[in-house]
Each structure stands twice: as C-alpha cells, then as structure tokens.
C-alpha cells in the first residue's frame, strides 16, 4: 500500500526577475515499509522534493499524499533528517531529544522512556548528559536520528544524512540506520548523490534528470542485495554491476539545458 504518493508534482520558484522551474513532473509512490532512494546530479532538485514531501514548502501543481490525505503543512507523521546533525549546541543530548517532544507537546514519561530506549539502541545511553560538542560526528548524527524518531513518524525523509561523515563512520551508520528503520517498520525516502549508498540501502532507486527535475529511470534492487545489510550488500558480487549500470545512466544524462 502506498504511504507516500507524488502525482504530477511541479514546483516553480519565483524571484523578482525570474521564474525557475525546479521540478517539471515527478510521479512516484513509496509503499509502507519500503526504503526508496532518489539520486541525481547535484542541484537537480532532490532536496526540493524532500521539502515538498515534508510540507516545508508548497508545490505549484499536482498532488502529494500521505496515505490519502494531502500534505499541506508539516506533520508529526513525517520525520526529517538533515545533512548534518544540527543538534542545539546549548542543550545536552537528553535535552536535545526532549526538545522534539516539547515542540509536539507530547512530553511525558512514556515517550521519554521510548526515546531513552532508542538512545540505548544507538549505544549512547551514557552520553545523555553530555553536550553535543563532546560527541563525534557519527554519534551526533545518531542522536539526530533519535530526535527524529522521538515523534514516532511513519515516514522518514533522509536528506543526505551521511554526507558529512568520514567513510568508516558512514558505513557503520548506514548499517545502524537501515537496521533500526527495518526493525521499527519505518518507511524511508533517502536523497543522496552517492550511488553505492543508494544501492546498499534501498529497495528501489529513482534517478532524476538535471533541473528541471523529472524521473529518468527507476531501478528495482534485487532480493539478494535487499535482504543484506548495507555493509554486506557492498560485498556482494552483483553490487559492482549495479553500480556500473547506474553510473552509466547518470553519465548519460542530457547536459543541463538551462
């Protein structure tokens, strides 16, 4: 069943002198429990699609549905993870997580216990009273994940959450996030420019064209890669073939027209 539906979505940005066509026509669905990645050249409008789905900005035309309800404003059913952790530097780790509950006005013992349990799953229980500056980049991004999950969203929008990390940390975090999301039966839409990451983590991959964005190609990742953890999938013999395939498609994109 489709959790997120984008139907004939278009987006234009206005400035005093220009109308910029950011998204020409995008159609796709993400089913419940699915992990879908969007890849494409930089500046093609990937993040715009996430912002639209999150209800942070309005689309110009078309329909965006969460289950059957149109998304018009932000919704606690949708969690958003940014490129960096963006933890509040003046709050402890625990307070940073509680901030999410405060804002959605659902701070109570039960929800707090839930977030502390998540923190334990991220191996960060002992860091609850530390300040963000005392943690490494990977740890902070794990805290950011807990903060996003605190509102118990059914859909997670991930905006290149691994891009600011070193390679080793990134691989570990991919595994951890992948496992956590599968366990909690969360649906995820990941935006990335890293082909390997997309193949390793996703069930499906959407390839976007240059701006104005359209979906150029649709890849269904086979069972043998999907059932493996991202780290194991990278070791699988077919992984390189998929990488080559998608790499070629990316290379073959028409050069930017505008």
């Amino acid at each position: 069943m489709a959790l997120l539906t984008l139907r004939d979505v278009k987006k234009h940005f206005f400035s005093q002198n220009d109308v910029v066509e950011a998204i020409r026509n995008v159609n796709f669905t993400v089913d419940t429990g699915e992990f879908v990645s969007i890849i494409g050249p930089s500046g093609c409008g990937k993040t715009t699609i996430l912002s639209l789905a999150a209800g942070l900005i309005e689309h110009s035309e078309g329909e965006i549905l969460l289950q059957d309800t149109p998304i018009t404003k932000t919704n606690t059913n949708i969690g958003y993870m940014l490129q960096q952790d963006y933890l509040f530097p003046w709050l402890t780790i625990g307070q940073n997580i509680d901030m999410a509950l405060n804002i959605i006005k659902r701070k109570n013992k039960k929800n707090q216990a839930y977030t502390r349990e998540l923190l334990a799953q991220m191996n960060l229980s002992d860091r609850e009273h530390d300040m963000p500056s005392e943690l490494s980049g990977g740890m902070k991004q794990r805290v950011a994940l807990v903060r996003t999950l605190a509102a118990k969203p059914s859909l997670l929008l991930l905006d290149e959450p691994f891009s600011a990390l070193d390679f080793q940390t990134k691989l570990k975090l991919e595994d951890l996030i992948h496992r956590t999301l599968k366990e909690k039966e969360k649906t995820a839409l990941l935006v990335t420019h890293d082909i390997s990451e997309a193949i390793a983590m996703s069930d499906r991959i959407l390839l976007l064209t240059h701006r104005p964005a359209e979906i150029k190609k649709h890849f269904k990742i086979p069972e043998e890669l999907r059932e493996r953890s991202p780290l194991d999938a990278r070791q699988h013999p077919t992984f390189q073939d998929w990488f080559q395939l998608i790499w070629k498609e990316l290379e073959n994109l028409e050069p930017e027209t505008t």
Partner: peptide
Amino acid sequence: DKNLIKVVDTFGASTLQKFYYVILP
C-alpha cells in the same frame, strides 16, 4: 542558523516555539 530553525520546523513548531526554543537561546 537557518538549519536549527528548519529542525524545529520539521516538527511543526509555532512562531512562539521557534522564538522560545531556538531564536532566544
């Protein structure tokens, strides 16, 4: 930092919440 505001925006923060939780501190 606009991104800190974006974080609370994704949780649907009101203007007052934005001011109290982010801008002021």
